[in-house]
Amino acid sequence: MSLIVRDMAIARGGVPVLQGVSFDVQPGQALVLRGPNGIGKTTLLRCVAGLQPVLSGQVNTDADRLAYVAHADGIKSVLSVAENLSFWAQIFGRSDISAALEAYQLTALADRPAGLLSAGQKRRLGLARLLVTGRQLWIMDEPTVSLDGEAVHMFASAIRMHLSGGGSALLATHIDLGLAEAHVLDLAPYRATTMAGDAFDEAFL
């Protein structure tokens, strides 16, 4: 499955932020979105994930084959690491969580309540969630926040493995992951300049 975005315009809080964005992500590819704060990276990812409608343009993807990681990890602090992870595995119709625990070195922490984890460990748990979904396209919003150097390596190798297995990834990040194969898309040139496509507000002006 490939993700194809054509001439997309998006708005945040009713104000258009990006327009004319086009890109492809084929199986085995990763695309890194870059751009200054407030350019609309998070909004773009939410639109691709189907959480938010686009103002105009096309997003061609299969909603049943993508997994999404937001700023918030959806971790319940009173459940243990393993419980948190196996809940998401079950939601996605799977059961095996050991490989995901392994990949982010969480095996030793499996029985600890998630509330006692450090911020970096929580983030690793949030990323391990991607591995248990079994989805092909990963959409990640600032996945490396609060990760240390070693954890970033774990993350990069997890992505590399995902890509080599025919998966694909779309992520917004500021740091260099050391992923040579990843393409980079700078969003700065796509900053919206007109009230693109908002038929309603248009009618008032």
Partner: peptide, 16 residues
């Protein structure tokens, strides 16, 4: 209401 909405739309455009 329409005019209030129009004002908000104009303000949003202004901000951009």
């Amino acid at each position: 209401e329409i005019r209030a909405r129009r004002t908000r739309a104009l303000l949003a455009r202004e901000r951009m």
